[in-house]
Design a protein around this nucleic acid. Structure first.
Lengths: 234, 234
DNA sequence: CGGCAGATTGACCCTCATCAATCAAGGTGG
DNA sequence: CCACCTTGATTGATGAGGGTCAATCTGCCG
């Protein structure tokens, strides 16, 4: 289960993504930090498998609000929500230089028709996205700031580890403001709580560099408030 | 495109749902208030089209949190997120007596294989669910309590109107606590804000009965805070 | 008629937003 | 190569919006 894919970067892809890319992977595209992968309202023409770098997806509302809906790294697929509609429903922006593989809608459509397995895989990916967002809803709806940050750090750590990177030492690719936007907090709050975690010796923060010293204690931050009502059921 | 599927109540179904039900609709099932339509972790065997009544979907987390993820009425389809996995990922519970139409996975699988249109429809429904949840994320992440309730009331009103019911007068099928759970607020806050809206003569509340007197003012509650930073772009 | 779940309202307090000052790190142009 | 400027991060002081605790009220059902 634990592998050290060393190499330039031998990234273990999730099986579904792997299948998708090997069958319908097309054009590659390089992006520089700040580049838009796609924009809100643009015609949906392809999914994108992230090959290198990281991205944020942003949702814009009519009334001028904007909110980060996720950070995405190698091995993840962007644009899924466009599948059902004709346009992209938000922006996707590179947080650093990166590269994606296009999965053209056409190629997808025709292949999916003849490949039940692939079709199943797509449904699964859509469903996973729904799951991911529900988890965020719970976070936004019921967690206090400390818990949100703990979840955020642990989630990042876990995803990086799954890709063969260190689970305890990594670089944040996004600003405090972007983190705050995802978590429903202001950047000052994000900053303060990271500092607090550091003061409590659970982590070390220096700008974008993060060291997780005590993952267990970090984990125990989650749910250390809020009435735990059950414990023992009648 | 617009059809009025008979019945005592002429409920205009969304076209996708209509198609789905007419092609793969199977067993009907009656439920009483409080009954579970499906439970977290149960094997996924069918989607459900709501034919009458209303339901709440609830997400449960490992650490004992639970959160309402949506309220659903006639014409909506439940269980979509199970498509990609083998189990249901939350509970669905009847808020009042109701009836659903089962769409068995088997029937679905085989028919979808030969029906690109139906397949497309399913993708669209999944994508819509993602959209719906993103909207909730923005609500939870960036709106104040008043705004959340305004959005909630307007959304309910609009969905009821789309089904042929009054847009200005309706009965809430859920408790204050359930509303709060969806909106990330405590029931006391929900109650207070409804009272405030009433004091400002925008609505009338009496327990579960709601009258929307001034939909426009209610609409203007949304976004009447929060720095509107652009207005005129450079 | 009594009991109970749900709703309302009040008082108080805590968390987080807001406003603001300072600091650190890059990038750029001289 | 260094001074300058900009962007992002940190930290403090203050206050408001909701959470929490608690009392009361209202239907509703047995």
């Amino acid at each position: 289960m634990s592998r050290y894919p060393s190499g330039r970067t031998a990234i273990p892809l999730p099986p579904g993504v792997d299948m998708l890319l090997s069958r319908v992977g097309g054009q590659r595209r390089r992006l520089k930090r700040g580049d838009y992968l796609y924009r809100y309202g643009a015609e949906f023409h392809a999914l994108f498998g992230v090959h290198a770098g990281s991205f944020k997806t942003v949702l814009l509302t009519e009334d001028g609000r904007e909110q980060v809906t996720g950070f995405h790294m190698a091995g993840e697929v962007l644009g899924l929500d466009g599948l059902g509609s004709e346009v992209y429903n938000g922006d996707a922006i590179a947080l650093e230089d990166g590269e994606v593989i296009e999965i053209a809608r056409e190629a997808l459509d025709s292949l999916v028709r003849h490949e039940p397995l692939l079709q199943r895989e797509l449904f699964k990916m859509l469903a996973n996205e729904i799951q991911r967002e529900r988890a965020l809803m719970v976070l936004l709806g019921s967690m206090r700031a400390e818990e949100r940050l703990a979840v955020f750090l642990l989630n990042l750590s876990q995803r990086l580890a799954a890709r063969g990177y260190s689970a305890t030492r990594f670089i944040l690719r996004m600003t405090r403001e972007e983190i705050g936007s995802l978590l429903g907090l202001k950047l000052e709050t994000v900053s303060r709580i990271l500092s607090r975690f550091q003061a409590e010796k659970m982590i070390r923060v220096h700008n974008r560099e993060i060291d997780l010293y005590e993952i267990d204690r970090l984990r125990s931050v989650i749910g250390r408030n809020e009435a735990r009502r059950e414990e023992v059921a009648a």
